[in-house]
Design a protein around this nucleic acid. Structure first.
Lengths: 201, 201
DNA sequence: AATTTAATTGAACGCTGATCAATTAAAATA
DNA sequence: TATTTTAATTGATCAGCGTTCAATTAAATT
């Protein structure tokens, strides 16, 4: 068939994704552009559209990759926890966001058009992040209430997300708060203890 | 002086702000443009730049107005609370965001360049929102711990913000959560009770 | 009436996402 | 090998964006 480059379709997709992810990390959502990705990999803009279909789908793919790196980061922290596991989880949430601000921010900056659904495959890959938290929450809930872990875990992720957002966008600093991470950990502990969890320290 | 329109400088600023706010509500952050605002009020683009200095400052002004409407909405809910006051506050946070999605979202979509500080006047006006929450939290804390109200209030706002974000961006729905508001209220109550607050219901 | 002053303009610049007829080269066929 | 078919790739083109600033306009001053 008429391909004329060194790359198979799958390789090309991976190439675009890798360079797109790099560009997003470098310049952030507002300055990201498909043209710049194309220029950096030596292809024309049209090729990116052929491979990903639209700008939105390219962004969705890039952000999904970020989700996966984020989940891996959490697992890293849990593999050699420097604190109690729940605190390590919250710290991992924060440190990934802080160390990858542009990537992390892009996840929430990008919204698909209302008439455009996230492909099932991407949904599944993104869900892995929450699943780590569900597992850890279930592990410390009393056996008879473990079925509450999914809902509680999602709610705690939301709690941490809010604190992380305000920490990184400067809202906390503006209001004089100097220890957002400690605040987030405290709120999560309170809710877990209210749910009957047993936490060390 | 050489003004040639019907509007004083202050009136023109108010006109741009009003129309800009309307456009933001209509089309959202991604489709908002200074050119479209100019077209709608019958001025040239350059005039908006003369009045606001930059696109960023126009957006900051529009979002500050949204903050004020939001705070007013909270006070409305508190004036005739349909539930216990803290629950009414959380409900007010959610309902403003849900009823003004484009405006609410724009607050967090827009970030000033790192080398550009938010004007002090705007910071002050935005802070009014948090002050409502600080006041309500202080009112239910034991007298001897009222000095903890500011930090705790900010943290609870972050908690609610996270839940509201996930509720509106579809994260909760995607994970099967159907009652984000109730979740947020539960988390806030747990933290307030842990801090020794007395809450009705 | 002539001059000064300041508000307002809008063409120009370099960028964006998106499209799609034209081009290219590999694969299939004769 | 020569021809035809097929599909990957291109990039000019379009409409739009934020931003600038010399030129224009009209009000205020002299």
């Amino acid at each position: 068939m008429g391909r004329r480059s060194d790359h198979s379709r799958a390789e090309l997709e991976a190439l675009i994704l890798a360079e797109g992810h790099r560009l997003m990390a470098d310049v952030g959502f507002a300055r990201f552009s498909a043209r710049e990705v194309a220029k950096r990999i030596g292809y024309a803009v049209g090729t990116l559209y052929n491979v990903f279909g639209s700008y939105d789908m390219l962004l969705a793919a890039i952000n999904t990759r970020t989700f996966e790196l984020w989940a891996a980061h959490l697992e890293d922290r849990l593999a050699a926890p420097s604190a109690e596991r729940i605190a390590a989880l919250v710290e991992g949430y924060f440190s990934f966001a802080a160390d990858n601000m542009n990537l992390w921010t892009a996840i929430y900056d990008h919204r698909l058009p209302l008439d455009m659904a996230m492909p099932e495959a991407l949904v599944t890959r993104r869900a892995a992040l929450t699943e780590v938290v569900v597992r850890e929450v279930a592990a410390i809930l009393p056996p008879e209430t473990k079925d509450r872990a999914p809902r509680l875990a999602r709610s705690l992720v939301a709690t941490v997300h809010g604190h992380c957002t305000f920490a990184l966008n400067g809202s906390f600093a503006l209001l004089g708060e100097t220890a957002p991470l400690e605040m987030a950990i405290a709120r999560v502990r309170e809710s877990l203890i209210a749910a009957g969890a047993t936490i060390a320290d």
